[in-house]
């Protein structure tokens, strides 16, 4: 766990990327972890060709959840919504099903979290919220 905190996670926690609101998002969803009270909202702008032109988040949470959200927004930019869903599936598999770090890029930093089942939700919640936003269509 110490190794996890010494990685890029603290850096993203302190200086989260895309920690802002978007004027006129096409997709939006909120999530809340009732166990810890953490809240996160995700906004996206999906272009007509299905590319994620912009993605941002807001909310309160621990370093793991905020770093995960920050790194997710970086990873999703300019990806198709299909690619976003695939990336979530691989990220989820890494943490929950012993999946590999292949094609996860910087998100591989979360690999060590797989050994701490009580904290996995901290990292995955924002991805679930992103998926809910995509599934829900225009909700903003």
């Amino acid at each position: 766990m110490n190794e996890l905190y010494q990685s890029v996670i603290i850096e993203h926690y302190r200086s989260p990327r895309n920690f802002r609101t978007i004027d006129g998002p096409t997709h939006h969803a909120d999530g809340r972890n009732p166990l810890c009270g953490d809240e996160v909202s995700v906004e996206l702008v999906v272009a007509d060709d299905g590319t994620i032109a912009d993605v941002a988040f807001q909310g309160t949470g621990c370093a793991v959840s905020r770093a995960s959200a920050s790194m997710m927004t970086v990873a999703l930019r300019d990806q198709s919504t299909e690619q976003a869903r695939e990336l979530f599936a691989r990220f989820h598999a890494l943490l929950v099903d012993g999946g590999s770090t292949d094609r996860l890029g910087k998100l591989a930093a979360f690999e060590g979290l797989a050994a701490f089942p009580m904290r996995i939700k901290c990292a995955t919640m924002v991805w679930h919220v992103m998926k809910a936003a995509l599934d829900g269509g225009i909700q903003a």
């Binding site: 766990m1 110490n2 905190y5 810890c36 953490d38 949470g61 621990c62 370093a63 793991v64 701490f116 904290r119 901290c122």
Partner: peptide, 13 residues
């Protein structure tokens, strides 16, 4: 500057 959940994880270690 340290969220309680991060703190609890670091103490847990």
């Amino acid at each position: 500057g340290v969220h309680p959940h991060d703190l609890a994880s670091l103490l847990d270690a």
